[in-house]
Amino acid sequence: MTRDSHDVIVKTLARLLMPFMVVFALYVVMHGHHSPGGGFQGGVILAAGFVLLVISHGLEQTRKRMSEKVAEIISSIGVLIYGGIGVLCLILGGNYLDYGTLSKLLRVTPAEARSLGILGVEIGVALAVMAVMCTVFFAIFTAGESSQDDRSVK
């Protein structure tokens, strides 16, 4: 399962689906202000793209695009974006996560600053959820076998 599968149909379909999944995930994150959606849903759809990639192209091919280490770092960055926006609001003289104070920095009305603050927070959530989903999937997928040891033996 971890090796490259030789099924042409599965591989081609995955290659066709992947860009649409990514675009749809970005749409769900960005359009959360107007329609159902947001960081959690968009992040899960992004992670589903990587799961599809593992199933169709194998673990090694996927590791080139999203390794465990990168996923761990991105999940930390996502939480850091969320917390960082909150601290930025504190520095600008408001309460924690009071996006209205970001208007001084972005030069828009406080209501629009809140809208942009929500968007920034949603992006942080999407990154964290996507990376954690990938991390959990990789960890469970490789738990039974010790891939590093296998490679050294070969």
Partner: peptide, 21 residues
């Protein structure tokens, strides 16, 4: 308050932002 038409999003990420964090 938030210039966000979706009330669910504004409650989730703004009014209850600390909870979502």
């Amino acid at each position: 308050d938030t210039a966000t038409p979706n009330v669910v999003t504004s409650v989730l990420a703004d009014y209850r932002g600390y909870d979502t964090f």
